[in-house]
Structure formats: C-alpha cells, structure tokens
C-alpha cells in the first residue's frame, strides 16, 4: 500500500512536532518541579546559616562558599591557559599537524566523563601531589575539565574578529602581540566571557569530579588546602542519604537558579556580541 505523500508529510510533521514539544515539556517540567518544591525553602536564613546535623536542618551557607570558591579557582587557572591556547592556535600558527593534534586533544578532553576527572584528580592532586581533599585539588581538577570549553569559545570569538582589523594594525607597525592585546582580545572579549560563564556553570553543577577531590567537609574553609562541599555535592548527599528532602529541594532550587542565571547571562552576552558584530 502506498500512502499519499501529503499524508506522510502530515504524519511526519505531527511526529516531529510532538517530539519537539515533548522535549521542551521535559525541560520546563524539570525546572518548574524543582523550583516549585524548592523555592519555599529558600530564604536568607537558609542561604546564610550553616548546615546542622549533617544537613538535616539549618541552611547551606558553607556549601554556598564552596560553590563560589571552587569554580573561581578553576576559572583563574583555566581561563589564562585556555585563552592563550586559543590565541596561539588562531593568531600565531597556520594549520599544521601540530595544531591538528592540539585540536584533537582538546575535543577529546571535552568528551571525558567527569568520573574520570574525579579519579584522575584523586590520584594526581589528592594523593600524588599530596594536596589532600582540598579546594586546591578540586579547583585544579575542575580547571582541567572546563579547559576545552574555554579554548573552543575563545577560538570562535577570536576568529570572529574581522581580518581587516588585523591588517590595519600590522600595517601601522604593530607586532603580533600588540595586535592581539589592542585589537583581538578587546574585540573578542564578550565571546571569551561567554566561554568563561559556561565554564563556571559547568563547574557549579559538577558532582563526580568534585566529591573525590574537594571532599565534602561542611566546615567553613579557611585556606585553599581545606576540604569543602559544594551545593551540588551537598544536594547529592542529602538526596542519596535521604537526610532531608526539604533541604534537598531548597539546595536544588538554589543550584538551578545559579546555573540558569549564569547560563542566561552567557547567552545574553553572546547575543549582544552578535548584535554588535552585524
């Protein structure tokens, strides 16, 4: 039996549209569900008091600190490395075997699952380098993890700077580094910041790589050699051990708001960047 193409067309559109709607519905559901259950718990007291009784009661203050400090350290390490890698690849070399290998390595690194980063961070930073479960170990592990994101977004942003700007700069007697410093980086900045935001977003939500490297201490850290617990890890422990579903929802809501805020900022910056280009 042959169905008329017009009907297959209609059927196809229905199925495709249905699939798309389902996907969107799932996204909306996840966010709404968590926010609806969690937001009533979230208030200043929740955010600003320490967890008590393993998190069964009290707030999430120290985990909030952990969630700020760890991604911050990761960015401080990964951003300069990632940006200079991208600048080197786009401005200082032509496409060669070496750059191909570097790009391949970057792409591969981007695909490594976080549990592997966790294992590596544990054996390398925590054990071999003797840094123990600490902010330092966790931050460095996260830095490894977000490096590819920063390299890629920076590369895109740098490539988007018009070639004519470079030509003018060189023709006025600028060296390559002067051109990078005065023309390329300022113009690629919004794109670079987007990459940094995406990196922060990913670090905030990360659990597997953090729990084995930064540990899960609920005490307020006093140095980068102290262990800390991020919101994501705290949430995981609350949810898994069934300690307090109320606090778990509250933590999840805070986490989602933080991640959404950061990603939306990133998109907003990207949008402004594109608008400015055209």
């Amino acid at each position: 039996m042959r169905i008329h193409p017009r009907y297959t067309q209609r059927l196809a559109v229905t199925i495709l549209g249905g699939a798309t709607l389902l996907t969107l519905a799932v996204l909306v559901f996840i966010i709404v569900f968590v926010l609806e259950k969690g937001l009533p718990v979230v208030n200043f007291r929740f955010l600003l008091t320490n967890a008590e009784d393993m998190g069964r009661s009290g707030g999430i203050f120290t985990t909030l600190i952990g969630t700020i400090v760890l991604p911050l350290l990761a960015i401080i390490v990964a951003a300069p490395l990632g940006i200079s890698t991208a600048v080197y690849l786009t401005e200082y070399t032509l496409e060669t075997k070496v750059t191909k290998i570097i790009r391949f390595g970057t792409d591969c690194l981007a695909g490594i699952p976080s549990i592997i980063f966790g294992l590596f961070g544990f054996i390398f930073f925590v054990t071999t380098l003797g840094l123990g479960w600490s902010i330092l170990s966790g931050g460095l592990t996260l830095a490894f993890m977000i490096l590819p994101t920063i390299i890629r977004t920076t590369e895109e942003a740098v490539k988007a700077v018009p070639k004519s700007y470079r030509q003018v700069s060189f023709s006025l007697g600028a060296t390559r580094w002067q051109t990078v410093k005065r023309i390329i980086l300022p113009n690629a900045l919004p794109g670079i910041l987007t990459g940094i935001m995406l990196g922060i977003g990913r670090s905030i939500g990360e659990t597997a790589a953090v729990i084995f490297t930064a540990g899960s201490s609920l005490r307020l850290p006093t140095s980068i050699f102290d262990s800390t617990r991020t919101m994501a890890v705290h949430f995981y422990i609350l949810a898994r051990e069934g300690l307090s579903s109320e606090n778990a929802y509250g933590t999840a809501a805070t986490l989602i708001i933080a991640v959404l805020a950061i990603n939306l900022t990133a998109y907003w910056m990207m949008g402004r960047f594109i608008a400015k280009r055209s």
Partner: peptide, 19 residues
C-alpha cells in the same frame, strides 16, 4: 618587518576604522 611598516604606511581599498 615591524620597523619597515612604521616607515611605510598603507591605506587599504576598503575604509577600515578600528572599533
């Protein structure tokens, strides 16, 4: 080349104001 380009300036076909 950098020293050279300081002595020899260039105006391109398309006007390019830097941003």
């Amino acid at each position: 080349a950098v020293t050279l380009r300081k002595k020899v300036g260039m105006v391109f076909a398309l006007p390019v104001a830097l941003p």
